[in-house]
Each structure stands twice: as C-alpha cells, then as structure tokens.
Nucleic acid binder design. Structure first.
Length: 130
DNA sequence: GAGATGACTTGCA
DNA sequence: ATGCAAGCCATCT
C-alpha cells in the first residue's frame, strides 16, 4: 500500500529533532507564538513559556528555538532573546552575527549582543495575543 | 531508568 | 549592582 508513502513536505512542517521524532506538542505551541512576533519586535523565552502555559519552562522554549532553524515554515528565532534582551541564541545561527543582522534589518538596534530599547521593543504574547 | 545538558528565570548574598 | 545557586521541563546519552 502506498499509505506508508507520506509526503516528506508534510513531515517537514513539524519540528525535526536530532532523534528524528516529530510527535511534539508544546513545540508547536512555541512555534505558533514565535511566528506571531511582529517584525521589528522581540520577546523573551520566559514570556513565550508563560504564553504556552508552562511559565517556568523557559528552557524548553530556548531548546525548541534551537530546532526552529530546521522547522518549516521558518521561525523568526532571531526575535527571541533572553529576559535581559541578550542575543543568547545567536550562536545557533549560521553565523553568530547573522541574528544581529536580521534584527537590525528589522529596525532593532543591537549593541554588544544586546537589544537596545529592549523594554520598548518587547512584545508580550500574553498581552498582545490576549 | 538515571544522569547530564540546555538559545532561561528568579532569588538571595 | 554583580555573582552564585536552585528550579524548571524536555531531550539526549
């Protein structure tokens, strides 16, 4: 039967972990939020964690973001920084400067791997989505 | 199944 | 204010 023939494209719509598993749940939620980050805005892992209802699972958010690069559609992971506005995940990009380039391209000034006016450009999923 | 790791956050000294 | 430790959840070895 060709039932086993699944579209590889469909599988790519799900996060691909190093193990090759795709049966995720919170990952999808995280990506759903991350994709809704407005251009030129940034948010923190903790904020997304709260938005998905895990509050303290900020680590999982960051971990999920590491997979974001292999997930389709692509996730604007460069808009996600830590609570201090630091580009903690820049090293996950092709180049450690690529994340900063993307942010500056969107109008977000970055200095010393830190988002300038972070408090102003901060996008709270709980408030904006609510 | 246990131990260690991680793009984090918060609290206390 | 700077620095260290604990907590947190999912994944990896």
């Amino acid at each position: 039967m060709s039932a086993t023939k699944k579209s590889r494209n469909d599988e790519k719509l799900k996060p691909v972990r190093p193990s090759g598993k795709t049966d995720d749940t919170i990952f999808d939620l995280i990506y759903a939020i991350a994709r809704q980050i407005p251009r030129g805005r940034v948010t923190s892992y903790g904020a997304i964690a709260k938005a998905i209802g895990s509050g303290k699972s900020a680590r999982i958010v960051g971990w999920a973001m590491s997979n974001a690069g292999r997930v389709k559609p692509k996730i604007p992971a460069h808009r996600v920084v830590n609570s201090m506005g630091l580009l903690s995940g820049k090293h996950a990009f092709k180049t450690i400067t690529y994340m900063q380039e993307l942010l500056e391209r969107e109008g977000v000034k970055v200095k010393n791997d830190k988002v300038m006016d972070f408090k102003t450009k901060f996008w709270n999923p709980l408030e904006e989505l609510f």
